[in-house]
């Protein structure tokens, strides 16, 4: 895994995601108090935090699914909340979002799930071209044999892999992973974490990974941020945070 990490292009200083003093609440409950986050091109940033601390909310602001009450969220230098519907759609084609459940479309086979973003987002029409892209991405996630299966026939790990394939098929520049290994056994979790690294190498993406899984964090993170009570309380590499003087940060590594 270290070898894969080294093979990935060196991080540039270009900031692709920049969240500044983001505050967001639902009714009287303030979920994000003051969130500051910068993601560099080619970087893998892991966000750790207990459940209900606003990790998913933070990444949903990046794709414009939620709009912050205060502060700014800039992606590729442009403020997300100022984009109109068309601009937002365009931005979303450059960002991949892997949901916790994989979020495969139940009524479609694996092939149709993968063709969906190609035909709707990239407006690809030629069947040869569609087949080529589908085959390529399925081979990358090691599920070529599952092409005609329905999501209900797949295991949890396979669903995540297909979800990852569907996200990567449009070749996004930024990948957002919402708890990619939750609910999986340790072996499959490790496989998914390694797959994330392989995909980053292959597709040269910048990633934000939300996880509770420390093995996933260890394998994938260039940098880790710890979110607690609506703000980031610690930042550093896996090794640095392992010996943090903050008890709450250390508690994740036990």
């Amino acid at each position: 895994m270290e070898r894969i990490k080294k093979e990935i292009e060196p991080k540039s200083n270009e900031i692709v995601v920049d969240m500044e003093d983001v505050r967001l609440g639902f009714g009287e409950k303030i979920v994000l108090k003051r969130v500051n986050l910068k993601l560099k091109r080619g970087e893998n940033l892991v966000i750790l935090g207990r459940s209900g601390q606003g990790k998913s909310v933070a990444i949903k602001c990046i794709v414009g699914m939620l709009t912050q009450d205060e502060g700014s969220v800039k992606v590729f230098g442009d403020e997300v909340s100022e984009k109109n519907e068309t601009e937002l759609k365009e931005l979303r084609t450059r960002i991949g979002f892997l949901f916790q459940s994989g979020a495969l479309y139940d009524s479609m086979s694996v092939r149709e799930n993968l063709e969906f973003p190609l035909t709707r987002v990239l407006r690809m029409r030629e069947q040869d071209e569609l087949d080529k892209n589908v085959d390529e991405v399925l081979e990358a996630v090691g599920l070529k044999d599952a092409i005609d299966k329905m999501p209900s026939d797949l295991s949890g790990g396979m669903r995540k892999r297909v979800g990852l394939a569907r996200t990567l098929i449009v070749k996004p520049e930024i990948m957002l992973y919402d708890e990619p290994t939750t609910g999986l056994d340790p072996i499959t979790s490790r496989e998914i974490s390694e797959l994330i690294m392989q995909m980053q190498k292959k597709y040269k993406t910048s990633s934000i990974i939300i996880t509770h899984d420390m093995e996933c964090a260890r394998i994938t993170a260039d940098r880790i941020l710890v979110l607690d009570n609506g703000e980031f309380i610690a930042e550093g590499s896996y090794k640095e945070l392992e010996s943090s003087d903050k008890k709450i940060v250390r508690s994740f590594f036990k």
Binding site: V63, T93, F99, A103, D106, P117
Partner: peptide, 13 residues
């Protein structure tokens, strides 16, 4: 199951 959200964030309608 977040399928509608997935559709939306992929840029589909």
């Amino acid at each position: 199951t977040e399928q509608i959200d997935a559709m939306e964030v992929s840029g589909a309608n």
